[in-house]
């Protein structure tokens, strides 16, 4: 359940592009054709899937306050979290390079379709953003970190495919000359983001329901207490009158 909630939340509610504007540069630059957009989107999912869990491990066992306690008691008080930017970006850059080499070796056809985009990805804010959000939201287990990586990648993938499809169609429309190209893309993305905001209500229902129950339970308790008090005072009064 926790997994499912995180999955849908990171795809729709906390969508990388529409809620946080992460990876906008490549989003705008590579969204002229659907086929290239698919390539880049797939590469982003792939790299996020690897780097987020890796950085989670780094964060848990190296960077967080008290993370070094596995080395021994005297290391427990170290807090290296100020190094997290440099560690995360180094991991991402090396992973991207590694993935490029491995893919080239074992699957030339995949390499040909992803190849050009892989080096671009090292400087895609969505990748670093994924790791930084993973850290700031204190995701608890490795499984959840893995889930978060994949689902936010899918969210980004959806966004870039949607805008690429719209941009292919919009070529046939009469856009005001000054808005052509970049301007209209910005405005369309804004409108799409407004659409995606409606997903915000999707998950709050689940959170609210138990809270409402809690409230009624509290009220019930209070009423019971009050009635108890009342009966007590009544019995007191009865005793007094006797």
């Amino acid at each position: 359940m926790e997994h499912l909630e995180l999955f849908f939340k990171s795809i729709f509610v906390d969508n990388m592009v529409f809620a946080y504007f992460l990876g906008m540069c490549s989003y705008l630059a590579v969204s002229k054709k659907v086929s290239t957009a698919v390539g880049l989107g797939a590469a982003v999912i792939f790299v996020l899937m690897i780097t987020v869990p890796l950085n989670w491990l780094l964060d848990q066992y190296l960077l967080q306050e008290g993370a070094l306690s596995w080395l021994g008691e005297e290391y427990a008080s170290y807090d290296l979290s100020f190094l997290s930017f440099i560690m995360f970006i180094a991991t991402i850059a090396t992973m991207v390079q590694l993935v490029e080499i491995i893919v080239e070796k074992f699957s030339p056809s995949l390499y040909n379709s992803l190849g050009i985009f892989l080096p671009l990805i090292a400087v895609n804010c969505a990748i670093l953003g994924g790791s930084l959000f993973m850290q700031s939201r204190e995701i608890e287990t490795l499984g959840l970190a893995f889930n978060y990586g994949i689902s936010s990648g899918i969210g980004w993938f959806l966004a870039i495919i949607a805008i690429a499809a719209i941009r292919e169609k919009i070529r046939y429309s009469a856009v005001p000359p000054a808005l052509r190209g970049l301007g209209i893309t910005f405005i369309i993305t804004g409108l799409m983001a407004i659409g995606f905001m409606s997903f915000g209500g999707m998950l709050t229902g689940g959170d609210d329901a138990p809270k409402a129950e809690d409230k009624t339970a509290i009220i019930k308790n209070e009423i019971e207490k009050e009635t108890e008090d009342a009966t007590e005072t009544v019995s007191l009064v009865v005793d007094l009158t006797k």
Binding site: L182, G183, F186, I187, T189, M197
Partner: peptide, 27 residues
């Protein structure tokens, strides 16, 4: 205040800038 308006405001800035300087218009 909501995030989508940031995009639309930048879109409008681009619109104004390109209408003033026709050389920047994309084809």
């Amino acid at each position: 205040v909501l995030p989508p308006m940031a995009l639309i405001v930048v879109g409008i800035i681009i619109w104004i800038q390109r209408s003033r300087n026709k050389a920047l218009i994309e084809d």
